[in-house]
């Protein structure tokens, strides 16, 4: 986390997201004006909520965008939970000088693995490799959904599982095939046989 490049990467992503949200809010605001803010006698019309919400989004996201562009990390004014946690962590009298106090500063939702986010994980993958992996998994996911009309739900998700297990997670082809087949079989049993969901069979007609 201390690497400046990683920090700048996050800042760029932040700027893009805030920029998109600003644009989205502005768009919603302008479009909502056309829906009519008020009905007769100033009763709330269909455009009022989206216009007000869109306007507020523009203001807040725009503010965050400017702050990010000016190089400020978002000021994390802490919520109540974090304040209490912080108060609990700074024990009066300094009893726990135990320096391996675990996870004391873990914000909720983050894991202990976070500390190694720029390091190498147990499979010897670097952050850059994991980033690539993420892109591959997401592209594979999208492609498999696009393939559903052709291969059917079960067919294309068998391929997805096979691809992720073998190519991304580097398991042997045999175990990847077995695991993927088992997964698709379980899904078939649960959804098609038990829940009677008519899964699309696709052109070739696998499953469904």
């Amino acid at each position: 986390m201390t690497e400046p490049s990683a920090k700048r990467g996050i800042a760029v992503e932040q700027a893009v997201v805030y920029g998109l949200l600003t644009a989205l809010g502005l768009f919603a605001f302008v479009v909502a004006l056309g829906y009519g803010l008020f009905l007769d006698e100033f009763r709330v019309g269909p455009g009022l909520v989206p216009a007000v919400v869109g306007g507020l989004i523009t203001l807040i996201a725009g503010w965050e965008l400017v702050a990010t562009l000016r190089g400020q990390r978002t000021p994390h004014d802490k919520g109540l939970a974090e304040i209490v946690a912080a108060a609990a962590e700074a024990p009066p009298g300094g009893v726990s000088s135990d320096d391996d106090l675990p996870g004391g500063t873990l914000p909720s939702g983050e894991q202990a693995g976070e500390g190694t986010s720029d390091g190498v994980d147990i499979f010897g993958r670097t952050a850059a490799m994991r980033g690539r992996q993420l892109v591959i998994v997401f592209v594979a996911l999208t492609v498999s959904v696009l393939l559903v009309p052709l291969l059917g739900f079960l067919g294309s998700f068998f391929l997805l599982s096979l691809f992720i297990s073998a190519a991304v997670e580097r398991r042997s082809w045999i175990s990847a095939t077995i695991v993927s087949f088992a997964a698709v079989a379980v899904i078939y049993l649960v959804f098609v046989v038990f829940l009677r969901v008519p899964l699309p069979a696709g052109l070739i007609g696998i499953g469904g």
Binding site: V53, I60, T74
Partner: peptide
């Protein structure tokens, strides 16, 4: 309470409303 930054929490609540 949800996050450590109330402006962002508000921003997300508004996005949900939108």
């Amino acid at each position: 309470f949800a996050g450590d930054n109330r402006a962002l929490g508000l921003l997300m609540a508004l996005t949900g409303l939108l």
